[in-house]
Design a protein around this nucleic acid. Sequence first.
DNA 1: TTGCGGCATTTCAACATTCGAAATAGGCTT
DNA 2: AAGCCTATTTCGAATGTTGAAATGCCGCAA
Lengths: 256, 256
Amino acid sequence: MSTRPAYLTATLAKGLDVLEALSEVEETGLSELARRLGVSGPTLFRILATLAARGYVQKSAASRYRLTLKAWEIGAKTVRRIRLRDVARPFMERLAAATGETVHLSVMQGDGIVIVDKIDSPHPVRVDTFVGQRAPAYCSATGKAILAFLPSASLADILPRSYARHTAATIADRAAFERELADVRRTGWAKNREEWRDGVCAAAVPLFDSSGAVAASLSVTVPTPRFTQSALREKLVPALKKTGAALTDEFARARG
Amino acid sequence: MSTRPAYLTATLAKGLDVLEALSEVEETGLSELARRLGVSGPTLFRILATLAARGYVQKSAASRYRLTLKAWEIGAKTVRRIRLRDVARPFMERLAAATGETVHLSVMQGDGIVIVDKIDSPHPVRVDTFVGQRAPAYCSATGKAILAFLPSASLADILPRSYARHTAATIADRAAFERELADVRRTGWAKNREEWRDGVCAAAVPLFDSSGAVAASLSVTVPTPRFTQSALREKLVPALKKTGAALTDEFARARG
DNA sequence: TTGCGGCATTTCAACATTCGAAATAGGCTT
DNA sequence: AAGCCTATTTCGAATGTTGAAATGCCGCAA
Protein backbone atom coordinates (compact mmCIF):
# COMPACT_ATOMS: atom_id res chain seq x y z
CA MET A 1 0.00 0.00 0.00
CA SER A 2 1.16 3.50 -0.65
CA THR A 3 -0.62 5.34 2.15
CA ARG A 4 0.74 3.42 5.07
CA PRO A 5 2.58 5.71 7.49
CA ALA A 6 6.28 4.98 7.16
CA TYR A 7 6.84 5.01 10.90
CA LEU A 8 4.97 1.80 11.60
CA THR A 9 6.51 -1.62 11.32
CA ALA A 10 4.33 -3.84 9.21
CA THR A 11 5.90 -7.10 10.29
CA LEU A 12 5.18 -6.47 13.94
CA ALA A 13 1.62 -5.48 13.12
CA LYS A 14 1.18 -8.74 11.28
CA GLY A 15 2.43 -10.64 14.30
CA LEU A 16 -0.09 -8.86 16.49
CA ASP A 17 -2.80 -9.74 13.99
CA VAL A 18 -1.88 -13.36 14.44
CA LEU A 19 -1.93 -13.09 18.23
CA GLU A 20 -5.34 -11.48 18.13
CA ALA A 21 -6.73 -13.93 15.63
CA LEU A 22 -5.52 -16.87 17.69
CA SER A 23 -7.20 -15.46 20.78
CA GLU A 24 -10.54 -15.83 19.01
CA VAL A 25 -10.24 -19.55 18.43
CA GLU A 26 -9.39 -22.58 20.47
CA GLU A 27 -6.94 -23.90 17.94
CA THR A 28 -6.21 -23.55 14.25
CA GLY A 29 -4.08 -24.80 11.39
CA LEU A 30 -1.70 -22.74 9.33
CA SER A 31 -3.52 -22.43 6.04
CA GLU A 32 -6.88 -21.85 7.67
CA LEU A 33 -5.39 -18.92 9.56
CA ALA A 34 -3.50 -17.68 6.52
CA ARG A 35 -6.73 -17.54 4.56
CA ARG A 36 -8.46 -15.69 7.36
CA LEU A 37 -5.74 -13.10 7.74
CA GLY A 38 -4.96 -12.80 4.06
CA VAL A 39 -1.26 -13.55 4.36
CA SER A 40 0.76 -16.10 2.48
CA GLY A 41 1.60 -19.47 3.93
CA PRO A 42 5.33 -18.98 4.28
CA THR A 43 4.84 -15.59 5.92
CA LEU A 44 2.48 -16.98 8.49
CA PHE A 45 4.73 -19.94 9.00
CA ARG A 46 7.58 -17.64 9.95
CA ILE A 47 5.42 -15.53 12.22
CA LEU A 48 4.06 -18.57 14.01
CA ALA A 49 7.54 -20.02 14.32
CA THR A 50 8.70 -16.78 15.91
CA LEU A 51 5.75 -16.62 18.29
CA ALA A 52 6.30 -20.25 19.21
CA ALA A 53 10.01 -19.71 19.79
CA ARG A 54 9.11 -16.86 22.10
CA GLY A 55 6.55 -18.93 23.97
CA TYR A 56 3.40 -17.12 22.90
CA VAL A 57 2.12 -19.93 20.79
CA GLN A 58 2.13 -23.66 21.13
CA LYS A 59 2.52 -25.87 18.13
CA SER A 60 1.20 -29.40 18.35
CA ALA A 61 2.78 -32.40 16.70
CA ALA A 62 0.07 -32.15 14.05
CA SER A 63 0.97 -28.51 13.35
CA ARG A 64 -2.07 -27.10 15.02
CA TYR A 65 -1.51 -23.79 16.75
CA ARG A 66 -2.92 -22.31 19.94
CA LEU A 67 -2.04 -19.50 22.28
CA THR A 68 -0.20 -20.14 25.50
CA LEU A 69 -0.67 -18.05 28.62
CA LYS A 70 2.39 -15.93 27.88
CA ALA A 71 0.42 -12.85 26.85
CA TRP A 72 -1.67 -13.29 29.95
CA GLU A 73 1.40 -13.42 32.16
CA ILE A 74 2.66 -10.17 30.69
CA GLY A 75 -0.74 -8.65 31.22
CA ALA A 76 -0.92 -9.94 34.77
CA LYS A 77 2.15 -7.90 35.62
CA THR A 78 0.40 -4.86 34.23
CA VAL A 79 -2.86 -5.41 36.10
CA ARG A 80 -1.00 -5.95 39.30
CA ARG A 81 0.08 -2.32 39.12
CA ILE A 82 -3.51 -1.22 39.56
CA ARG A 83 -3.36 -0.67 43.31
CA LEU A 84 -7.05 -0.07 43.61
CA ARG A 85 -7.61 -3.73 42.93
CA ASP A 86 -6.28 -4.91 46.26
CA VAL A 87 -7.94 -2.12 48.17
CA ALA A 88 -11.26 -2.81 46.47
CA ARG A 89 -11.52 -6.55 47.12
CA PRO A 90 -13.11 -6.42 50.60
CA PHE A 91 -15.47 -3.67 49.51
CA MET A 92 -16.52 -5.73 46.54
CA GLU A 93 -17.22 -8.64 48.83
CA ARG A 94 -19.34 -6.44 51.02
CA LEU A 95 -21.26 -5.15 48.02
CA ALA A 96 -21.77 -8.66 46.70
CA ALA A 97 -23.10 -9.77 50.06
CA ALA A 98 -25.41 -6.78 50.34
CA THR A 99 -26.90 -7.15 46.86
CA GLY A 100 -26.53 -10.81 45.98
CA GLU A 101 -25.54 -9.70 42.48
CA THR A 102 -22.41 -9.95 40.36
CA VAL A 103 -19.97 -7.19 41.25
CA HIS A 104 -17.38 -5.79 38.86
CA LEU A 105 -14.41 -3.49 39.21
CA SER A 106 -13.57 -1.91 35.86
CA VAL A 107 -11.16 0.62 34.44
CA MET A 108 -11.10 2.70 31.29
CA GLN A 109 -8.83 1.48 28.49
CA GLY A 110 -8.89 3.30 25.21
CA ASP A 111 -12.51 3.79 24.23
CA GLY A 112 -13.85 0.95 26.33
CA ILE A 113 -13.85 -0.44 29.81
CA VAL A 114 -12.16 -3.59 30.99
CA ILE A 115 -13.28 -5.69 33.93
CA VAL A 116 -10.26 -6.08 36.22
CA ASP A 117 -11.90 -7.99 39.05
CA LYS A 118 -15.25 -9.56 39.78
CA ILE A 119 -17.30 -11.48 42.28
CA ASP A 120 -19.97 -13.78 40.96
CA SER A 121 -23.53 -13.64 42.11
CA PRO A 122 -24.57 -16.82 43.88
CA HIS A 123 -27.86 -16.56 42.02
CA PRO A 124 -28.39 -19.42 39.55
CA VAL A 125 -29.56 -16.95 36.93
CA ARG A 126 -26.68 -14.62 36.35
CA VAL A 127 -24.92 -12.81 33.57
CA ASP A 128 -21.94 -14.47 31.95
CA THR A 129 -18.96 -12.16 32.26
CA PHE A 130 -15.27 -12.64 32.80
CA VAL A 131 -12.31 -10.82 34.19
CA GLY A 132 -10.46 -9.28 31.25
CA GLN A 133 -13.67 -8.66 29.32
CA ARG A 134 -14.02 -5.41 27.39
CA ALA A 135 -17.16 -3.42 26.72
CA PRO A 136 -17.75 -0.18 24.85
CA ALA A 137 -17.72 2.68 27.36
CA TYR A 138 -20.74 4.43 25.90
CA CYS A 139 -23.12 1.54 26.39
CA SER A 140 -22.10 0.21 29.77
CA ALA A 141 -23.03 1.54 33.18
CA THR A 142 -19.39 1.30 34.16
CA GLY A 143 -18.28 3.32 31.17
CA LYS A 144 -20.84 6.04 31.74
CA ALA A 145 -19.92 6.32 35.41
CA ILE A 146 -16.34 6.99 34.42
CA LEU A 147 -16.99 9.15 31.36
CA ALA A 148 -19.29 11.41 33.32
CA PHE A 149 -16.49 12.46 35.64
CA LEU A 150 -13.62 12.68 33.19
CA PRO A 151 -12.17 16.13 32.46
CA SER A 152 -13.67 17.31 29.19
CA ALA A 153 -10.23 17.33 27.56
CA SER A 154 -9.83 13.54 27.97
CA LEU A 155 -13.48 13.00 27.20
CA ALA A 156 -13.11 14.47 23.72
CA ASP A 157 -10.64 11.77 22.70
CA ILE A 158 -12.81 8.98 23.99
CA LEU A 159 -16.34 9.89 23.00
CA PRO A 160 -17.25 7.71 20.05
CA ARG A 161 -17.64 9.43 16.72
CA SER A 162 -20.13 6.72 15.84
CA TYR A 163 -22.58 5.35 18.35
CA ALA A 164 -22.87 1.85 16.97
CA ARG A 165 -26.15 0.20 17.78
CA HIS A 166 -25.79 -3.07 19.70
CA THR A 167 -29.38 -3.55 20.87
CA ALA A 168 -32.67 -1.72 20.52
CA ALA A 169 -31.84 0.25 23.66
CA THR A 170 -28.38 1.45 22.67
CA ILE A 171 -28.05 5.21 22.95
CA ALA A 172 -27.35 6.12 19.39
CA ASP A 173 -26.60 9.80 19.21
CA ARG A 174 -24.38 12.38 20.74
CA ALA A 175 -27.08 14.63 22.18
CA ALA A 176 -28.86 11.82 24.02
CA PHE A 177 -25.55 10.62 25.36
CA GLU A 178 -24.59 14.05 26.67
CA ARG A 179 -27.93 14.18 28.47
CA GLU A 180 -27.23 10.74 29.93
CA LEU A 181 -23.86 11.88 31.26
CA ALA A 182 -25.45 14.96 32.80
CA ASP A 183 -27.88 12.65 34.59
CA VAL A 184 -25.04 10.57 35.90
CA ARG A 185 -23.27 13.65 37.24
CA ARG A 186 -26.44 14.79 38.93
CA THR A 187 -27.45 11.49 40.53
CA GLY A 188 -23.97 10.09 41.16
CA TRP A 189 -24.64 6.72 39.55
CA ALA A 190 -25.01 5.31 36.06
CA LYS A 191 -27.24 2.64 34.63
CA ASN A 192 -27.37 0.45 31.58
CA ARG A 193 -30.65 -1.12 30.57
CA GLU A 194 -29.83 -3.64 27.86
CA GLU A 195 -27.89 -1.09 25.87
CA TRP A 196 -25.12 -3.48 25.02
CA ARG A 197 -26.48 -6.97 25.41
CA ASP A 198 -30.09 -8.03 25.58
CA GLY A 199 -31.14 -9.16 29.02
CA VAL A 200 -28.21 -7.52 30.73
CA CYS A 201 -28.54 -4.46 32.96
CA ALA A 202 -26.13 -2.79 35.33
CA ALA A 203 -25.71 0.05 37.75
CA ALA A 204 -22.37 1.66 38.52
CA VAL A 205 -20.69 4.34 40.58
CA PRO A 206 -17.37 6.06 39.88
CA LEU A 207 -14.36 5.66 42.13
CA PHE A 208 -11.91 8.50 42.65
CA ASP A 209 -8.26 8.63 43.59
CA SER A 210 -6.75 10.94 46.17
CA SER A 211 -6.42 13.75 43.63
CA GLY A 212 -10.15 13.61 42.99
CA ALA A 213 -9.75 12.19 39.48
CA VAL A 214 -12.00 9.31 38.47
CA ALA A 215 -9.95 6.13 38.58
CA ALA A 216 -12.34 3.27 38.03
CA SER A 217 -15.89 2.12 38.51
CA LEU A 218 -17.72 -0.27 40.76
CA SER A 219 -20.82 -1.95 39.39
CA VAL A 220 -23.46 -4.59 39.82
CA THR A 221 -24.52 -6.49 36.74
CA VAL A 222 -28.02 -7.92 36.85
CA PRO A 223 -30.34 -9.85 34.51
CA THR A 224 -33.24 -7.63 33.39
CA PRO A 225 -35.96 -9.36 35.42
CA ARG A 226 -34.21 -8.51 38.67
CA PHE A 227 -33.31 -4.97 37.60
CA THR A 228 -36.53 -3.42 38.87
CA GLN A 229 -37.18 0.09 40.08
CA SER A 230 -37.72 -1.15 43.58
CA ALA A 231 -34.57 -3.28 43.59
CA LEU A 232 -32.63 -0.24 42.42
CA ARG A 233 -34.19 2.13 44.90
CA GLU A 234 -34.12 -0.09 47.92
CA LYS A 235 -31.05 -2.19 47.43
CA LEU A 236 -28.71 -1.71 44.50
CA VAL A 237 -28.22 2.04 44.36
CA PRO A 238 -27.91 2.60 48.12
CA ALA A 239 -25.43 -0.26 48.45
CA LEU A 240 -23.43 0.96 45.45
CA LYS A 241 -23.26 4.54 46.69
CA LYS A 242 -22.35 3.53 50.20
CA THR A 243 -19.67 1.08 49.12
CA GLY A 244 -18.36 3.39 46.44
CA ALA A 245 -17.98 6.28 48.84
CA ALA A 246 -16.29 4.11 51.46
CA LEU A 247 -13.93 2.66 48.89
CA THR A 248 -13.01 6.05 47.47
CA ASP A 249 -12.24 7.18 51.04
CA GLU A 250 -10.15 4.14 51.77
CA PHE A 251 -8.31 4.43 48.47
CA ALA A 252 -7.49 8.08 49.08
CA ARG A 253 -6.23 7.15 52.54
CA ALA A 254 -4.19 4.18 51.28
CA ARG A 255 -1.91 6.36 49.20
CA GLY A 256 -1.91 9.55 51.29
CA MET B 1 24.19 -12.06 13.07
CA SER B 2 24.96 -14.85 10.69
CA THR B 3 23.63 -17.82 12.64
CA ARG B 4 20.07 -16.63 13.11
CA PRO B 5 17.60 -19.15 11.67
CA ALA B 6 16.15 -17.65 8.52
CA TYR B 7 12.63 -18.76 9.35
CA LEU B 8 12.17 -16.33 12.22
CA THR B 9 11.06 -12.76 11.79
CA ALA B 10 13.45 -10.47 13.60
CA THR B 11 11.17 -7.46 13.62
CA LEU B 12 8.38 -9.29 15.37
CA ALA B 13 10.83 -10.67 17.90
CA LYS B 14 12.01 -7.16 18.63
CA GLY B 15 8.45 -6.05 19.19
CA LEU B 16 7.94 -8.88 21.67
CA ASP B 17 11.13 -7.83 23.42
CA VAL B 18 9.63 -4.41 23.88
CA LEU B 19 6.37 -5.81 25.21
CA GLU B 20 8.22 -7.96 27.68
CA ALA B 21 10.56 -5.19 28.75
CA LEU B 22 7.64 -2.84 29.31
CA SER B 23 5.92 -5.42 31.49
CA GLU B 24 8.83 -5.20 33.89
CA VAL B 25 8.50 -1.51 34.57
CA GLU B 26 5.74 0.86 35.47
CA GLU B 27 6.69 3.35 32.79
CA THR B 28 9.71 4.25 30.72
CA GLY B 29 11.10 6.69 28.20
CA LEU B 30 12.27 5.89 24.72
CA SER B 31 16.02 6.22 25.04
CA GLU B 32 16.13 4.50 28.41
CA LEU B 33 14.37 1.51 26.89
CA ALA B 34 16.49 1.66 23.74
CA ARG B 35 19.62 1.43 25.85
CA ARG B 36 18.25 -1.46 27.82
CA LEU B 37 17.26 -3.44 24.75
CA GLY B 38 20.23 -2.44 22.64
CA VAL B 39 18.24 -1.11 19.72
CA SER B 40 18.54 2.25 18.05
CA GLY B 41 16.25 5.14 18.86
CA PRO B 42 14.44 5.32 15.55
CA THR B 43 13.86 1.56 15.53
CA LEU B 44 12.33 1.61 18.96
CA PHE B 45 10.34 4.67 18.05
CA ARG B 46 8.72 2.79 15.18
CA ILE B 47 8.06 -0.28 17.27
CA LEU B 48 6.45 1.75 20.05
CA ALA B 49 4.39 3.69 17.53
CA THR B 50 3.13 0.42 16.11
CA LEU B 51 2.34 -1.03 19.51
CA ALA B 52 0.58 2.19 20.47
CA ALA B 53 -1.43 2.24 17.24
CA ARG B 54 -2.52 -1.30 18.01
CA GLY B 55 -3.48 -0.41 21.57
CA TYR B 56 -0.84 -2.41 23.40
CA VAL B 57 1.05 0.60 24.63
CA GLN B 58 0.03 3.98 25.88
CA LYS B 59 2.09 7.03 25.14
CA SER B 60 1.77 9.99 27.45
CA ALA B 61 2.01 13.60 26.38
CA ALA B 62 5.54 13.63 27.76
CA SER B 63 6.46 10.61 25.60
CA ARG B 64 6.55 8.17 28.44
CA TYR B 65 5.42 4.69 27.55
CA ARG B 66 3.51 2.05 29.51
CA LEU B 67 1.59 -1.10 28.71
CA THR B 68 -2.15 -1.09 28.45
CA LEU B 69 -4.30 -4.08 29.37
CA LYS B 70 -4.55 -5.23 25.76
CA ALA B 71 -2.19 -8.18 26.20
CA TRP B 72 -4.12 -9.13 29.29
CA GLU B 73 -7.41 -9.06 27.43
CA ILE B 74 -6.02 -11.40 24.81
CA GLY B 75 -4.73 -13.65 27.55
CA ALA B 76 -8.05 -13.55 29.37
CA LYS B 77 -9.70 -15.11 26.35
CA THR B 78 -7.12 -17.88 26.48
CA VAL B 79 -7.47 -18.56 30.21
CA ARG B 80 -11.20 -18.67 29.89
CA ARG B 81 -10.80 -21.79 27.77
CA ILE B 82 -9.42 -23.65 30.76
CA ARG B 83 -12.67 -25.26 31.81
CA LEU B 84 -11.22 -26.65 35.00
CA ARG B 85 -11.10 -23.13 36.37
CA ASP B 86 -14.84 -22.79 36.77
CA VAL B 87 -15.26 -26.28 38.08
CA ALA B 88 -12.47 -25.79 40.58
CA ARG B 89 -13.64 -22.56 42.19
CA PRO B 90 -15.98 -24.02 44.81
CA PHE B 91 -13.46 -26.72 45.66
CA MET B 92 -10.80 -24.10 46.14
CA GLU B 93 -13.09 -22.22 48.47
CA ARG B 94 -13.67 -25.36 50.45
CA LEU B 95 -9.94 -26.03 50.67
CA ALA B 96 -9.25 -22.44 51.69
CA ALA B 97 -11.85 -22.69 54.44
CA ALA B 98 -10.51 -26.03 55.66
CA THR B 99 -6.88 -24.91 55.81
CA GLY B 100 -6.98 -21.15 56.26
CA GLU B 101 -4.10 -20.94 53.78
CA THR B 102 -3.66 -19.45 50.34
CA VAL B 103 -4.94 -21.83 47.68
CA HIS B 104 -3.69 -21.91 44.10
CA LEU B 105 -4.82 -23.57 40.92
CA SER B 106 -1.94 -23.86 38.48
CA VAL B 107 -1.23 -25.31 35.07
CA MET B 108 1.91 -26.29 33.24
CA GLN B 109 3.15 -23.86 30.60
CA GLY B 110 6.44 -24.57 28.92
CA ASP B 111 8.97 -25.44 31.59
CA GLY B 112 7.14 -23.68 34.38
CA ILE B 113 3.79 -23.46 36.07
CA VAL B 114 1.41 -20.54 35.97
CA ILE B 115 -1.12 -19.70 38.67
CA VAL B 116 -4.50 -19.43 36.97
CA ASP B 117 -6.66 -18.83 40.04
CA LYS B 118 -6.16 -18.25 43.71
CA ILE B 119 -7.85 -17.62 47.02
CA ASP B 120 -5.98 -15.59 49.57
CA SER B 121 -5.43 -16.76 53.09
CA PRO B 122 -7.16 -14.55 55.62
CA HIS B 123 -4.04 -14.86 57.76
CA PRO B 124 -2.19 -11.57 58.17
CA VAL B 125 1.11 -13.30 57.50
CA ARG B 126 0.82 -14.73 54.04
CA VAL B 127 2.87 -15.24 50.93
CA ASP B 128 2.66 -12.60 48.23
CA THR B 129 1.56 -14.27 45.00
CA PHE B 130 -0.62 -13.24 42.11
CA VAL B 131 -2.77 -14.81 39.46
CA GLY B 132 -0.67 -14.99 36.30
CA GLN B 133 2.52 -15.61 38.23
CA ARG B 134 5.01 -18.11 36.86
CA ALA B 135 7.35 -20.39 38.78
CA PRO B 136 9.89 -22.94 37.62
CA ALA B 137 8.23 -26.36 37.64
CA TYR B 138 11.16 -28.16 39.23
CA CYS B 139 11.20 -26.07 42.38
CA SER B 140 7.54 -25.65 43.13
CA ALA B 141 5.17 -28.11 44.78
CA THR B 142 2.70 -27.49 42.01
CA GLY B 143 5.25 -28.23 39.33
CA LYS B 144 6.38 -31.44 40.95
CA ALA B 145 2.81 -32.63 41.42
CA ILE B 146 2.27 -32.26 37.69
CA LEU B 147 5.67 -33.48 36.48
CA ALA B 148 5.37 -36.62 38.55
CA PHE B 149 2.33 -37.75 36.61
CA LEU B 150 3.29 -36.67 33.12
CA PRO B 151 3.98 -39.37 30.54
CA SER B 152 7.73 -39.77 30.31
CA ALA B 153 7.70 -38.61 26.69
CA SER B 154 6.42 -35.13 27.63
CA LEU B 155 8.58 -35.11 30.72
CA ALA B 156 11.75 -35.37 28.68
CA ASP B 157 11.04 -32.05 26.95
CA ILE B 158 10.32 -30.25 30.18
CA LEU B 159 12.90 -31.50 32.63
CA PRO B 160 15.44 -28.75 33.01
CA ARG B 161 18.88 -29.43 31.62
CA SER B 162 20.22 -27.13 34.31
CA TYR B 163 18.79 -27.10 37.81
CA ALA B 164 19.44 -23.44 38.62
CA ARG B 165 19.84 -22.80 42.31
CA HIS B 166 17.33 -20.27 43.67
CA THR B 167 17.76 -20.89 47.40
CA ALA B 168 19.85 -23.11 49.62
CA ALA B 169 17.11 -25.74 49.45
CA THR B 170 16.73 -25.90 45.67
CA ILE B 171 17.07 -29.41 44.35
CA ALA B 172 20.10 -29.05 42.15
CA ASP B 173 20.63 -32.28 40.31
CA ARG B 174 18.85 -34.72 38.14
CA ALA B 175 19.19 -37.76 40.36
CA ALA B 176 17.79 -36.04 43.44
CA PHE B 177 14.95 -34.69 41.38
CA GLU B 178 14.06 -38.10 39.98
CA ARG B 179 13.94 -39.41 43.54
CA GLU B 180 11.67 -36.53 44.49
CA LEU B 181 9.26 -37.34 41.66
CA ALA B 182 9.21 -41.00 42.71
CA ASP B 183 8.23 -39.86 46.19
CA VAL B 184 5.42 -37.75 44.80
CA ARG B 185 4.10 -40.69 42.80
CA ARG B 186 4.24 -42.90 45.87
CA THR B 187 2.59 -40.51 48.34
CA GLY B 188 0.27 -38.70 45.94
CA TRP B 189 1.30 -35.21 46.95
CA ALA B 190 4.26 -32.89 46.43
CA LYS B 191 5.96 -30.40 48.70
CA ASN B 192 8.26 -27.46 48.34
CA ARG B 193 10.24 -26.31 51.34
CA GLU B 194 11.80 -22.98 50.39
CA GLU B 195 13.20 -24.40 47.17
CA TRP B 196 12.29 -21.36 45.14
CA ARG B 197 11.85 -18.49 47.55
CA ASP B 198 13.07 -18.26 51.11
CA GLY B 199 10.28 -18.45 53.65
CA VAL B 200 7.82 -19.93 51.19
CA CYS B 201 6.61 -23.53 51.37
CA ALA B 202 3.79 -25.32 49.61
CA ALA B 203 2.04 -28.63 49.27
CA ALA B 204 0.23 -29.71 46.12
CA VAL B 205 -1.78 -32.51 44.57
CA PRO B 206 -2.26 -33.25 40.88
CA LEU B 207 -5.63 -32.97 39.16
CA PHE B 208 -6.58 -35.30 36.35
CA ASP B 209 -8.97 -35.00 33.44
CA SER B 210 -11.44 -37.64 32.34
CA SER B 211 -8.80 -39.42 30.28
CA GLY B 212 -6.65 -39.80 33.36
CA ALA B 213 -4.01 -37.33 32.16
CA VAL B 214 -2.71 -34.80 34.64
CA ALA B 215 -4.32 -31.46 33.85
CA ALA B 216 -3.36 -29.09 36.62
CA SER B 217 -2.48 -28.87 40.28
CA LEU B 218 -4.14 -27.68 43.43
CA SER B 219 -1.91 -26.32 46.16
CA VAL B 220 -1.67 -24.51 49.45
CA THR B 221 1.14 -22.00 49.84
CA VAL B 222 2.27 -21.39 53.37
CA PRO B 223 4.95 -19.33 55.15
CA THR B 224 7.64 -21.62 56.60
CA PRO B 225 6.70 -21.17 60.31
CA ARG B 226 3.24 -22.61 59.67
CA PHE B 227 4.50 -25.41 57.41
CA THR B 228 5.08 -27.86 60.26
CA GLN B 229 4.98 -31.63 60.20
CA SER B 230 1.88 -31.63 62.34
CA ALA B 231 0.09 -29.04 60.21
CA LEU B 232 0.87 -31.13 57.15
CA ARG B 233 -0.15 -34.41 58.71
CA GLU B 234 -3.29 -33.23 60.42
CA LYS B 235 -4.60 -30.54 58.17
CA LEU B 236 -2.94 -29.64 54.91
CA VAL B 237 -2.29 -32.99 53.28
CA PRO B 238 -5.63 -34.60 54.20
CA ALA B 239 -7.56 -31.54 53.02
CA LEU B 240 -5.55 -31.37 49.79
CA LYS B 241 -6.01 -35.03 49.00
CA LYS B 242 -9.67 -35.00 49.80
CA THR B 243 -10.38 -31.85 47.78
CA GLY B 244 -8.14 -32.92 44.94
CA ALA B 245 -9.84 -36.30 44.62
CA ALA B 246 -13.29 -34.72 44.74
CA LEU B 247 -12.35 -32.14 42.15
CA THR B 248 -10.84 -34.70 39.81
CA ASP B 249 -14.08 -36.68 40.11
CA GLU B 250 -16.22 -33.67 39.44
CA PHE B 251 -14.08 -32.58 36.52
CA ALA B 252 -14.25 -36.01 34.93
CA ARG B 253 -18.02 -35.95 35.35
CA ALA B 254 -18.38 -32.41 33.99
CA ARG B 255 -17.13 -33.42 30.57
CA GLY B 256 -18.36 -36.98 30.43
C1' DT C 1 0.11 -50.53 -3.33
C1' DT C 2 -0.26 -46.47 -5.94
C1' DG C 3 -1.81 -41.96 -6.90
C1' DC C 4 -4.14 -37.94 -5.59
C1' DG C 5 -5.14 -33.80 -2.74
C1' DG C 6 -4.44 -31.00 0.97
C1' DC C 7 -1.44 -29.06 4.16
C1' DA C 8 3.10 -27.76 6.01
C1' DT C 9 7.78 -26.58 5.15
C1' DT C 10 11.89 -25.03 2.66
C1' DT C 11 14.29 -22.62 -0.92
C1' DC C 12 15.56 -18.57 -3.26
C1' DA C 13 15.91 -14.33 -5.93
C1' DA C 14 13.29 -9.91 -6.21
C1' DC C 15 12.02 -6.35 -3.65
C1' DA C 16 9.93 -3.74 -0.10
C1' DT C 17 10.90 -2.66 4.52
C1' DT C 18 13.65 -1.75 8.04
C1' DC C 19 17.84 0.23 9.49
C1' DG C 20 20.69 3.83 11.83
C1' DA C 21 23.50 8.08 11.05
C1' DA C 22 22.62 12.50 10.93
C1' DA C 23 19.76 16.40 11.00
C1' DT C 24 15.92 18.65 13.35
C1' DA C 25 12.94 19.85 17.00
C1' DG C 26 11.55 20.43 21.64
C1' DG C 27 12.40 20.78 26.80
C1' DC C 28 14.68 21.79 30.80
C1' DT C 29 18.72 23.54 33.34
C1' DT C 30 22.41 26.51 34.17
C1' DA D 1 21.39 32.44 25.70
C1' DA D 2 24.01 28.30 25.55
C1' DG D 3 24.27 23.52 26.56
C1' DC D 4 22.45 19.09 27.20
C1' DC D 5 19.24 15.50 26.87
C1' DT D 6 15.50 13.26 24.72
C1' DA D 7 12.20 12.59 21.03
C1' DT D 8 11.20 12.73 16.16
C1' DT D 9 11.97 12.93 11.15
C1' DT D 10 14.60 12.23 7.01
C1' DC D 11 16.89 9.43 3.73
C1' DG D 12 19.97 6.34 1.21
C1' DA D 13 22.00 1.75 2.07
C1' DA D 14 21.36 -2.94 3.01
C1' DT D 15 19.00 -6.11 5.36
C1' DG D 16 15.02 -8.69 6.21
C1' DT D 17 10.85 -10.05 4.31
C1' DT D 18 8.24 -11.79 0.62
C1' DG D 19 5.56 -15.31 -2.19
C1' DA D 20 6.05 -18.50 -6.18
C1' DA D 21 7.47 -22.67 -6.72
C1' DA D 22 9.54 -26.91 -5.28
C1' DT D 23 9.53 -30.36 -1.83
C1' DG D 24 8.00 -33.19 1.76
C1' DC D 25 4.50 -35.32 4.40
C1' DC D 26 0.29 -37.60 5.53
C1' DG D 27 -4.22 -39.65 4.89
C1' DC D 28 -7.52 -41.36 1.92
C1' DA D 29 -9.56 -43.65 -2.04
C1' DA D 30 -9.21 -46.62 -5.67
